[in-house]
Amino acid sequence: MRTATAKSILIVDDEEVMREFLTEILEDFAITKACNGEEAVEKIKERKFNLIITDMKMPGISGEEVVKFAREKSPETEIIVISGYSSLSSVSNTLGHGVRAFLSKPFTIKQIRAEVEKIFQTGDFTQTGGIRIGDGI
């Protein structure tokens, strides 16, 4: 399924297991990995991604700041937030529009795939479906 025009995804998480797992299940996409906020910002500066999947809590630059930076740098990039916090309240107030989904860890393969596919298949990047929250396992 992987094509020359494969969609690019930036995976940002300080947890190696999470980065590796996401890379495995999203093997059809062009994956770039960043293990912290600083690295993510560098990568966003270098190039444009179709999708950024980012963790929230990271040492140094947080996921929230990564989202803000990405919004400014490339407003068309889609964003999915994944977090170890099961409650949205801890992040919702700091998140603006443009975050397509919020998945709380641990999430199923089906959930993350569904979110990613939804973003790329609709192709309607202007649609604002609001924040969707993963319903856990």
Partner: peptide, 24 residues
């Protein structure tokens, strides 16, 4: 509690993901 939940959810995410992936 919040910190613990986060701390647990990270490895759990890996466990769930890899288990499902393996099964798949």
């Amino acid at each position: 509690a919040a910190g613990v939940a986060h701390e647990l959810n990270n490895p759990l995410g890996g466990i769930l993901g890899y288990a499902q992936f393996n099964l798949e």
